[in-house]
Amino acid sequence: MTVESLEQIKARAEAAVPGSEIDIVPNPGPSQQSSLLIDNEHALAVARFLRIDPALRLDFCSNATGVDWLDRTVKKTVKVKKVIDGVEKEVAEPQEEFFPGYLEAVYHLYSMTHKHGPVVIRMRTADRADGAHLPSLTPIWRSAEFQEREIFDLYGIRFDGHPDLRRILMWDEFVDHPMRKDYREPDDYEYEPTPHDDVLEKAKQLYSPRPQLDGAENITAQQQ
């Protein structure tokens, strides 16, 4: 990690880029790699600050990848005050909170000058459909070019300002984004000698049912 804490980096970046809003996304796992969530409007300016700031000098983007967060509803019980039979009471009511899905791009930054890192930064799209746009960070880190193309290919995030945004792994005629969680691969499971789990369910639809046996096969087996 860097000498500075994420909180210090956040404070300095917000001071350097007026109007920018940076959140810290905590990671309570063993790696403790919390990350900075940057608002899309000021992402390019914040990224430039991270790169050129003399104390940070995050001059190397080693990795850029995507994350798909689906729509989700969280069920919880909330205590609500209600008037029942003229008496105000606290009643526990089940409620569902809806969180719309979004896509995320995650960048891992290191400094070759100061030999520190990684600093993890994230950006979030507005939604998983037409609003899946993010500013490209390729102007800041050239090494992000192919990786942003890969994110576009597999997750469908469009990077505005990318010099050459095309599919990189799948063919150009392909329309899906295979790393999205709701992607379903083509059904070509005609021949599955030893299927199990998900493949068994898929293969069952293509199998011919076992013919009705009349017991004659047992007689030949006994004779042998």
């Binding site: 005609e190 293969a203 011919s208 049912p209």
Partner: peptide, 13 residues
């Protein structure tokens, strides 16, 4: 798949 070439054994299950 090319049906002229690809002829997997029928599996009954």
């Amino acid at each position: 798949a090319n049906p002229d070439v690809f002829d997997p054994p029928k599996i009954e299950r």
